[in-house]
């Protein structure tokens, strides 16, 4: 049982116009076996939260804390965070020229485990996971994300989630840009890994569509760098009907009406 705890997190970035505050006090605790959905309008800071957890150098933590089982995550480098068990499925996965998927997956697995995986079982595992996610076998020889379509990139993120078996998966809009079939395939990938019982999930999404396949235990509504409302799955249904207008108006006037 692991716990990822985010406390009163304030994050800013440097822009050409000066420092811009993006996260304005976010607190959130996720345990193994829990699925938390974070929903919110464009620009509310969802990706900022995800990237800050992963340690992207662009984001400056001004105050607050992130701990994984009591360990200070903010003290860790990006690769240390990954090795500690944090995995970020990115909204815009990056193309890496010169590195084949095969080489990349094996190198990452070796780094994460501290030892090289047994070649035979690993190859089989990769093949099977690719087949489940309906990723063509020839992707293994292609360079990481190079020339992949948006949907293919998302599948490959979930492929990594299944192969790397993190303690906590942060999925940043994995659903965006997917058609219904791909959405199902990707959700099933997450659910297979989740069902093993060793992972907690932070699912960032703009739409409720994916929540039909990945059932959240908690829903947090993100507005203007803060959590504006929290609840169970029923909150997602309400957002589906009402949209974010209620929160956006509240953010503008500074009040939240239930």
């Amino acid at each position: 049982m692991s716990t990822l705890e985010i406390k009163d997190l304030h994050v800013s970035i440097e822009t050409e116009q000066g420092t811009k505050q993006i996260l304005k006090g976010v607190s959130l605790t996720i345990q193994t076996g829990e699925i938390h959905a974070i929903m919110g309008p464009n620009g509310s800071g969802k990706s900022t939260l995800a990237a800050t957890i992963a340690g992207h150098p662009r984001y400056t933590v001004d105050s607050g804390s992130i701990t994984l089982d009591g360990e200070d995550v903010l003290e860790m480098s990006v690769d240390e965070r990954a090795r500690a068990g944090l995995f970020l499925a990115m909204q815009y996965p990056v193309e890496v020229p010169g590195v084949t998927m095969t080489n990349f997956l094996r190198t990452a697995k070796t780094a994460l485990d501290g030892e090289a995986p047994s070649l035979r079982t690993w190859t089989k595992e990769v093949k099977e996971a690719m087949a489940h996610l309906r990723i063509d076998a020839d992707f293994a020889q292609r360079n990481v994300n190079e020339g992949f379509s948006g949907g293919e990139k998302k599948r490959v993120e979930i492929l990594q989630l299944e192969l790397f078996k993190p303690k906590f998966a942060i999925m940043d809009e994995t659903d965006s840009g997917l058609d219904v079939d791909a959405l199902k395939v990707v959700s099933e990938g997450h659910n297979r890994e989740f069902a093993r019982g060793a992972m907690g999930t932070l699912l960032i999404t703009h739409y409720t569509r994916i929540l039909r396949y990945i059932k959240p235990d908690f829903v947090h509504v993100f507005v203007d760098g803060k959590i504006a409302e929290e609840g169970g799955p029923e909150l997602a249904d309400r957002l589906e009907e009402e949209g974010y207008d209620r929160f956006l108006a509240a953010a503008a006037t500074g009040t939240v009406k239930a």
Binding site: A54, D79, R83, G98, V99, A108, A111
Partner: peptide, 24 residues
């Protein structure tokens, strides 16, 4: 961004650069 991506998968910085150049 490429460096970040590889490091976010647990690969240390030096190894990430080597991986790219060697592979290439």
């Amino acid at each position: 961004e490429q460096l970040f991506y590889l490091m976010a998968r647990g690969i240390p910085e030096d190894d990430a650069r080597r991986l790219v150049v060697r592979g290439f």
